[in-house]
Amino acid sequence: MESLTSIERYASIEMCQQAVGARNDKENQMEAPKTDVLLKASEVAQELKVHVTTVYRLANSGRLRAHHIGQGTIRRRGLRIPKSAVAEFLRESAVA
């Protein structure tokens, strides 16, 4: 068995580390989170062809996924619904 010189040994170790490092970099890369368009309750109501109050009722009952932004103690202005939640609601409520 032939003995490697210190330079050859260092080069082979370095190549192995680079190969492992490249593989780990690919594994550790995370996909950027996909941003979802947030719609106002009035926009969702127009899309679903219902009254705005119906959208609030669906959101409060949990049937329509929504985010409450701000306090909203005086007026109901802080409700935002992801566009994907509207599509999901339509898919679930489809009549067979």
Score class of each variant (00 low, 15 high):
L38N: 09
L38T: 08
L38D: 06
L39S: 01
A41R: 01
A41L: 00
A41T: 04
A41E: 00
E43L: 02
E43V: 07
E43Y: 03
V44G: 02
V44P: 04
A45I: 14
A45N: 15
A45Y: 14
Q46N: 13
Q46A: 08
Q46M: 10
Q46Y: 09
Q46L: 08
E47R: 02
L48N: 09
K49W: 08
V50F: 10
H51L: 05
V52N: 00
V52D: 00
T53K: 12
T53C: 08
T54H: 12
V55W: 00
V55F: 01
Y56V: 01
Y56P: 05
R57A: 06
R57M: 04
L58Y: 15
L58R: 13
L58S: 08
A59R: 07
A59D: 11
A59W: 07
N60G: 05
N60P: 01
S61M: 11
S61F: 11
L64A: 14
L64K: 12
L64I: 15
R65H: 14
R65Y: 15
R65L: 13
R65T: 14
R65F: 13
R65V: 14
A66I: 09
H67F: 13
H68W: 10
I69Y: 15
G70A: 12
Q71R: 09
Q71P: 08
Q71H: 08
G72F: 07
G72T: 07
G72D: 07
T73H: 13
T73I: 14
I74L: 06
R75K: 12
R75P: 05
R76L: 09
R76Q: 13
R76A: 09
R76P: 04
R76K: 15
R76D: 06
G78R: 06
G78T: 01
L79G: 00
L79R: 02
L79C: 05
L79P: 03
R80W: 11
R80I: 11
R80Y: 12
I81V: 15
I81Y: 11
I81C: 12
P82R: 00
P82T: 01
P82C: 03
